[in-house]
Design a protein around this nucleic acid. Structure first.
Lengths: 151, 151
DNA sequence: TAAACGTAGTTGACACTTCACCAAAATTGC
DNA sequence: GCAATTTTGGTGAAGTGTCAACTACGTTTA
């Protein structure tokens, strides 16, 4: 079998470590500064990008690449905290909307600048534009391949 | 405030997406092929790299960059499945060892080749050596910065 | 040597994710 | 028009990770 070369091994492990560390740090910062988890943040960002801050569960799930069940549980919790509201859908009796509330808007508007600043300080500031381009290219290519393998 | 440029935004989002998608795919493959989670796998890899397959909780936690509480919970679950055993430590009455079992060795030996193959097929095969070098450099640099900010 | 402090690991509560299954409503095909 | 299928979303249980509080043991220090 083809084992990993030392270079491959190192690159892969470093890459995984980066993900764990940076992700952990960013979500802890977000939580501390705004009482939003990374998942909450992602939902709210999406809702502010959409007319009337209102979107079908399904569309939201597709946009975030979440499972429907995760969506359902998570929105229930966010609704419990008043960040969003669930609304029935008149046209489609099965469907429902997620709608951002005023409190939700306030939360995301307070959190976004801090989060962007953290992404800069912890990541972008240490990466050259050329490196960033490579990263984006590689990411898009690999995700594209993942999408092809429906497996 | 300094908002993100479109290039930065795109690179950052692609990068995050890559981590989520690739991590999700790999751990689902691992789970399906060998009934090990990514966390189980990491623990077992570490234990096979160490004399007698036995390591202090503390050292294992440091190596994996896990919190001690996570270590404790996770090892308890793995012990329940017979992959490892907990052993008291004679020299230090507080301490304890985690020891890999025969079943644990069998599981990791079955899983490792499949996992490596998946990492190749889903990631390494789509990245040039030069790109991989950039990735490793960036990862190491950024993680290094994270370590400096004790914040 | 006794008090104070630090270290190793545990525990319980809670938040989160996935899985497998369920129900209702819409769509499709005959 | 009606049965079969698909789509949309919900639910409960089990596994996972984090936090804060806790126990028990070791080390330092006065």
């Amino acid at each position: 079998m083809r084992w990993l070369t030392p270079d491959e091994q190192h690159a892969w492990r470093s890459f995984v470590r980066l993900h764990e560390r940076l992700g952990g740090r960013l979500s802890r910062l977000l939580q501390a500064e705004s009482s939003l988890s990374a998942a909450d943040f992602a939902v709210l960002v999406n809702l502010t990008d959409v007319p009337e801050g209102r979107q079908r569960y399904q569309d939201l799930a597709r946009a975030l690449e979440w499972e429907k069940s995760r969506m359902s549980h998570h929105i229930a919790r966010m609704a419990g905290r008043g960040l969003v509201v669930r609304e029935e859908c008149a046209e489609d009796g099965r469907g429902a909307f997620v709608v951002i509330t005023e409190a939700g808007r306030a939360a995301i508007e307070a959190a976004a600048p801090l989060h962007v600043e953290a992404v800069r300080e912890l990541f972008l500031d240490h990466v050259t534009p050329a490196e960033l381009r490579v990263l984006a290219e590689v990411s898009d290519r690999v995700v594209g391949k993942l999408d092809e393998d429906v497996s």
